[in-house]
Design a protein around this nucleic acid. Structure first.
Lengths: 193, 193
DNA sequence: TGTACATCAGTGAACGCGCGTTCACTGATGTAC
DNA sequence: TGTACATCAGTGAACGCGCGTTCACTGATGTAC
């Protein structure tokens, strides 16, 4: 992350303002992450992100070279780790992931479900940024996977993740509440059996 | 579909131009479907769609009241049936769906994978339009599903569909070709075993 | 059937709004001596 | 330590481009008699 490079560049000459800048930068990334997940990249303006971070839009270009740059950095910062930490097995993780709470909370939810198809259509930069998160996520799931061989674990991790992301997305598409709930319930069952 | 309503409205008073209009309307919907799947709703302009349909942008409003309207109608027309027809079982269908050919062909591919998260974030109108297609697709998969009870078939149809959509999307996100291929291969295995 | 009239799909210029980006300026931060 | 200077995050007005939408106009289609 550029943040780290920046600190390295400053070396031991710590400045109060630089501290504030690091905080502001993180606030921008956090606000952007939430807004993008809720409304998509094109559904959010630079000005909105900056306002949510407590700044005016003009300051944006002190932090990022363009909106495209912000999107890429936001994706890099969007790793799924928080969801995995407390889950001892894929089944329990799926239970949390496929909850109604998660389905209804775009802003704090999984970036693959909320922006997956957008990124899939995007340029190499954005896809690369999210591919890092994808690898991390699969590696963590693999640790918790059941299976005799490494191959088996890998396969069940990948399949489970595809199922979770797909199910959450489909349940969010359905405007029929019953079908939406059913998708979550039945896929949860499949992943815990 | 409005097309049918239109024909009914015209009744027996068939007009040559009306014929042409029906064709043009279908051409617009087809062009829009391909372009939207490839570049997303906001990545495509009304003028581009009309040009692809062989018309100029001004004529657009003789067919649709707004871009939003076009998007809704395009989604309604995007059913997955073509992919299911030739597949006798979910396993064989998954083999086609999770092919590299499908992954690399956004324009003619599955609308859930290419526009799923966009629609999930959208208003009730768009989600409703795609929910119809989702129900149709699940019903068709259910017909071909293995399982002792109706419940079992339903569960395996929903889970299989979530896995397919999720896997195709993830494989498209990955800019690492190996990982992308691996996702397709391992999920195909899971769905055929 | 033929003729006068009405309709309306289609054209392309123009409008106007929204949004990403730029810029002159400010004032606090941080530095040099 | 104190003072003069340099830097630069932050502000808000302004720019300009793109795109959805509108509109006056055309000419072919279709209708009425």
């Amino acid at each position: 992350m550029t943040v780290i490079l920046y600190i390295v560049k400053c070396g031991d000459t710590m400045r109060v303002t630089k501290d504030q800048m690091v905080k502001s930068r993180l606030a921008i990334l956090k606000a952007a992450g939430k807004l993008f997940r809720k409304r998509g990249f094109e559904g959010v303006t630079v000005a909105e992100v900056m306002e949510a971070a407590g700044l005016t839009h003009g300051a944006f270009y002190s932090y990022f070279t363009s909106k495209q740059d912000l999107i890429a950095e936001t994706l890099e910062a969007s790793v799924e780790s928080k969801w995995v930490q407390s889950a001892p097995s894929i089944g329990e993780y799926a239970g949390q992931y496929l909850s109604k709470k998660h389905r209804d909370d775009f802003a704090n939810g999984c970036v693959f479900a909320s922006l997956g198809s957008d990124v899939a259509r995007s340029n190499a930069e954005l896809r690369h940024a999210l591919t890092g998160g994808l690898k991390t996520q699969l590696a963590k799931l693999e640790e918790h996977a059941h299976g005799k061989s490494v191959e088996d674990k890998r396969q069940s991790a990948i399949t489970a993740w595809a199922t979770m992301v797909g199910a959450l997305m489909l349940s969010r598409i359905s405007d029929d509440k019953e079908l939406s709930d059913e998708i979550l319930e039945r896929t949860t069952l499949s992943l815990t059996q």
